[in-house]
């Protein structure tokens, strides 16, 4: 089993770690860096609870080897709030009831952020389509969709 030294910027902070070749990105984040906001759900690439950003693109960290983020920038849910201020999506998920148990929320937030970066004016259908890689077993999705649309409208004046 080979071991590798990787350099990665996580939520703005430079890290250098030695990892075994089979380390997953989800394990690197939770077990090595103790960033436990990123959740392990199905661990089979279906539920999306482990979604994080790598170089600005949303990915499933349970399907990515840690070595593959060598030289990359990673953002997790812990990186959304800036200077003690919650991200607008985090505020909106609270006010719209976009969560119940909260387990899917970190992944939902990261997917939602990527979705709005790619398409700042999504329709409701586009939001629902964009969330197809993230499962929520509590809310029935309506609160989540409302929260994302609200941020889009607030930014661009409905």
């Amino acid at each position: 089993m080979s071991r590798h030294t990787i350099k990665v910027i996580v939520n703005g902070q430079a890290e250098e770690l030695e990892v075994p070749a089979h380390r997953l990105l989800s394990e690197l984040l939770r077990d090595d860096l103790h960033l436990i906001g990123t959740k392990r759900g199905c661990e089979a690439g279906i539920c999306g609870a482990c979604s994080v950003h790598v170089d600005g693109r949303v990915v499933k960290s349970c399907l990515m080897l840690a070595i593959h983020v060598d030289g990359c920038e990673v953002q997790t849910v812990e990186g959304l709030a800036q200077a003690g201020q919650l991200h607008p999506l985090q505020e909106s998920f609270m006010t719209c009831g976009g969560l119940q148990c909260g387990y899917c929320t970190p992944g939902m937030l990261m997917t939602a952020k990527a979705l709005l970066a790619e398409n700042p004016h999504p329709t409701e259908a586009q939001v629902r389509q964009g969330l197809s890689g993230n499962l929520c077993r509590c809310t029935g999705y309506n609160g989540i969709v409302d929260a994302i649309l609200e941020v889009a409208e607030a930014r661009h004046g409905a």
């Binding site: 693109r57 990915v59 499933k60 399907l63 997917t111 979705l115 197809s132 890689g133």
Partner: peptide, 9 residues
Amino acid sequence: IADSQIRNQ
């Protein structure tokens, strides 16, 4: 294809 995360990866 699949979902946005899988399309990125």
